[in-house]
Nucleic acid binder design. Structure first.
Ligand SMILES: [Mn+2]
Ligand SMILES: [Mn+2]
Ligand SMILES: [Zn+2]
Ligand SMILES: [Zn+2]
Lengths: 142, 142
DNA sequence: CAACAGTTTAGAATAATTATAATATATTAT
DNA sequence: ATAATATATTATAATTATTCTAAACTGTTG
């Protein structure tokens, strides 16, 4: 649970001006007990629900991308329709529920990060992520 | 290297009429020594390069999705801009070269498919895929 | 061949995202 | 504090990928 002043410092220290839009977005994204996944549209809706003045959609895009560049958010591609973002910036894996389109985090206790036995020559590994797609089993019991 | 007549049979046996557009797309996709990855746009360009009459973009979309539904293609989400498709329909993992936007297959010898220690209740696992993002190492020595 | 269902097509529609350029705000220098 | 500068926000237009539509066409079956 960070306060406004702490967000201000965090933003300043990463070279981002602490505007009221950015502070509001920080509050919505980071003033929480748990990390979560969202789309830009989810976020825009959340903000406008809580806020009297609106934040322009362009600003939401700009801010989310700025935060991603600074490492405060991760982008996750599961389906090509829209981008998901993640306030959990640690290395972790996901279940994707194809029934509900829900993304669920899972750590190394549930899925061990696989070892890469041989890398591409001259390249550095930036991330290793596992995606498990699940859906209701329509193949009822035999 | 399959021939036209074989594609005709394959299509018929899966309930798809062997139209000339579908046969041409089969040829471009499956008449090869190796599997590969492509975007709809790549495919449309390939076709129009080889062909005098054009195949409508809508037909390319329709056909790719029909082939995917029949299991002849897989769809892969790496970046949210566009969809990649894969003529390799086996379970396998990928390197994604962030410099070139190239997708590279890799099998269990290079990346072992991770074990899922605990699944979501009441759901069936449809796929487990590893994505390794790599890029040139700009972090030169020391 | 006739009839029908399935397919293709061009173009319009949609949806996510990015670009533009004018206005506003935050920071820095005076 | 004020002015100058750099950066951010905004409404709106543009772009891009993808899907929809409805008319024309083609493959299949009898
Ligand atoms: Mn799709
Ligand atoms: Mn993006
Ligand atoms: Zn996550
Ligand atoms: Zn592949």
């Amino acid at each position: 649970m960070l306060k406004n002043a702490e967000f201000t410092n965090k933003l300043r220290s990463s070279g981002l001006r602490p505007t009221k839009q950015r502070l509001k977005i920080c509050e919505v994204l980071f003033n929480r007990d748990h990390t979560f996944h969202f789309t830009i549209n989810d976020l825009a809706k959340n903000i406008s629900r809580e806020l009297n003045e609106k934040i322009s959609l362009a600003t939401v895009y700009n801010t989310v991308h700025a935060f991603k560049k600074k490492g405060y958010l991760k982008e996750i591609s599961i389906n090509s329709d829209k981008s998901y973002f993640d306030t959990n910036t640690t290395n972790h894996h996901h279940f994707f529920d194809e029934d509900t389109n829900e993304l669920i985090d899972c750590d190394d206790k549930i899925i061990e990060t696989p070892k890469i036995k041989k890398n591409i020559l001259g390249k550095k590994i930036n991330s290793v992520e596992v995606l498990v797609k699940v859906a209701t089993d329509n193949q009822n019991q035999k």
